[in-house]
Structure formats: structure tokens, C-alpha cells
């Protein structure tokens, strides 16, 4: 199959990628752009390890063609914070032991980031429901939920302080 050029923006940087029309976004991110935060856990959009943010929505990048996201803005976990300024969610996952093997973590945090954009003050039940598309085999979710609620509180507090 012939390759084509697609323009996408990843973590704020414009990228010109050359891919077959059948190439999945997760493979473009991981293998062409070497953005390896999003992981592959199932390739059937059940596990959520590959979750990225596309134009303000959580999307499982293992079941989207790169061709489908031409012209769109993509954010991965790498785009949420930096080593010197981690995102409150990244801090909270560490603080509350919200991860173990770390494989689901980038997708988990990327999904939680969008969840808190959609609902900045979720209840525990809303967090559990809103995160149900992301599987974790290690933590039993209790500390993930705790971390997301703590991050929400932290983000709301700093927002208030800024206003």
C-alpha cells in the first residue's frame, strides 16, 4: 500500500508523517515519532493503555488510523507536564501510590486529565465510572481513584488561588 503524508500536531509540535493509510495512530506515535508513553495492551480498544487526547477528547489510539487524525491536535502523557513541572495528576499518582508496573499509567493519567477537564470536581463514583475504559491489573484502582480526587482538589485550589 502506498504511503502518504499526514500533518498532525503532537504535544504542541507540528509533525509531518509518512504512513500507509492503514497505519494505526499508536504505531505512528510509538514507532515513527518515538513517543512511547502510550502503550499497547490489547489492540481492541478495551484496555486503554494507548489513550491519548485528540482535539479535547479521550481516544484509544490503537483503533484509530493516523489518516483519520490528519490536521488534529494530539496530546500524550509526555505533553501534560515536564520533569521540572509535573502535572498535578502525575504528582498525585506518585503521592498516593496510584501505579505499580506503570504500563497502564500513561493512558490512565491522560484519561484522568480529560475527565477533570470535563468534570473538575467529580465524586468518587464519577471517577470510577469515568475511568472505566482504562484497565489496570496491579493496583485494584483504589489508589488511582484517590490520586485523581486529590489531583482534582489540588487543581481546583490552585485555580482558586490564581483567581
Amino acid at each position: 500500500m502506498g504511503k502518504q503524508h499526514y500533518q498532525i500536531t503532537v504535544n504542541g509540535e507540528p509533525q509531518d508523517v509518512l504512513a500507509e493509510p492503514r497505519e494505526l495512530l499508536i504505531h505512528t506515535l510509538r514507532e515513527q515519532l518515538r513517543i512511547t508513553g502510550p502503550h499497547i495492551g490489547c489492540e481492541t480498544s478495551h484496555c486503554g493503555a494507548c489513550t491519548v487526547d485528540i482535539d479535547g477528547r479521550s481516544v484509544k489510539s490503537c483503533t484509530v488510523f493516523t489518516a483519520q487524525v490528519a490536521g488534529k491536535e494530539i496530546t500524550t502523557v509526555e505533553g501534560l507536564g515536564s520533569p521540572d513541572a509535573m502535572h498535578p495528576l502525575q504528582e498525585a499518582f506518585r503521592e498516593h501510590h496510584g501505579l505499580q508496573c506503570g504500563y497502564c499509567t500513561p493512558g490512565m493519567i491522560t484519561r484522568a486529565y480529560r475527565l477533570l477537564q470535563e468534570n473538575p470536581s467529580p465524586t468518587e463514583e464519577e471517577v470510577r465510572f469515568g475511568m472505566a475504559g482504562n484497565l489496570c491489573r496491579c493496583t485494584g484502582y483504589q489508589n488511582i481513584v484517590k490520586a485523581i480526587l486529590a489531583a482534582a482538589a489540588e487543581m481546583n485550589a490552585s485555580k482558586e488561588a490564581a483567581e
Partner: peptide
């Protein structure tokens, strides 16, 4: 956790 939360783990497929 610092590397895992920032997407900087190094798994075999990476």
C-alpha cells in the same frame, strides 16, 4: 514513579 508517570518507562516494545 517519576519515569512511569511521565511516559518514560522502558518496556520491551519501547
Amino acid at each position: 514513579d517519576a519515569r512511569f508517570t511521565q511516559g518514560k518507562g522502558n518496556y520491551v516494545d519501547d
